[in-house]
Amino acid sequence: MSGFAAVLRKDLRLELRSGESTLALLALSMLVLVVLVFALGAARVRSVDAAAGALWVAMVFAGMLGANRALLAERDNGAIRGLLLSPLDPSTLYAAKLCAAFIFMAVAEVGAVILMVLFFNLDFDASMARLAPILVLGAIGFSALATLLSAITGRTRGGDMLLPILVVPIFVPALIAGVKASAAALSGAPFESMGDWLKIMIAFDVLFVTAGYLLFEHVVGGD
C-alpha cells in the first residue's frame, strides 16, 4: 500500500508542479467542444442529446491524450525500469497509474462539463449532480483500459496512433451506455431510466480494472 501511495504522490506532485497533463486535457476538451458546436451547427446546439454526445467525444479524446502521457514520464529516462526493479508489485504500479489517470481525467471532465453547459446553452441545475456518477464511472473504465493499453502502444512504433485504434472499439459499450445515460440525466428523466445503462458501465469498470490489474505485469514485465 505504501508503494501505491508513493507512486501516486509522485505523479500528483509532478502534475501540481507542471500542470502539463491537466492543462493539455482541458485545452483539448475545449477544442473538441468548439469543433462540435461548429460541426453540428447552431440549430442543433440546444439539443440535450448533442450536448451529451459532445461531452463524451471530448472525454474520449482528452482521456486518450492523458493515457499517452501517463507512462511517458516513466519511459523518458528509463524510470520504468527502476520502478519495476523496486520491490513494487507491477499490479500496484498499475493501480497507482490508474488512479493518477483517473484524477487528471476527472479534473478535465469538470472543466468539460462547465464548457458544455455554456456552449450548448444548458442550465447549471440538479441535472449536473445526476451527471456526476455517470462521468465518474466512465472515467474509471476509460482510465483502466487506456492505462493498460498505453503501456503496450508506448513501446511499439507509431504507438500514439495505435492507442485510439485499440482503445475506442473496446470502450464502445461504456461509450454507448455513457452517452445514453448522460442524455437521460441532462433531460431530467427519472433516475430509474438510467439504471440499466449504469449497470453496463459498472460491469465494464469492474471487468477492466480487474483485467488491467491481472494483465499489467505481462505487459511491462520481461524486459
Binding site: 485499440l166 472499439p169 473496446i170 494483465l215 505481462h218 505487459v219 520481461g222
Partner: peptide
C-alpha cells in the same frame, strides 16, 4: 507476442 495475448484476452 505478450501484447497480442493481452489484447486478445481483453477484446
Amino acid at each position: 507476442a505478450r501484447f497480442g495475448a493481452v489484447i486478445g484476452i481483453v477484446a
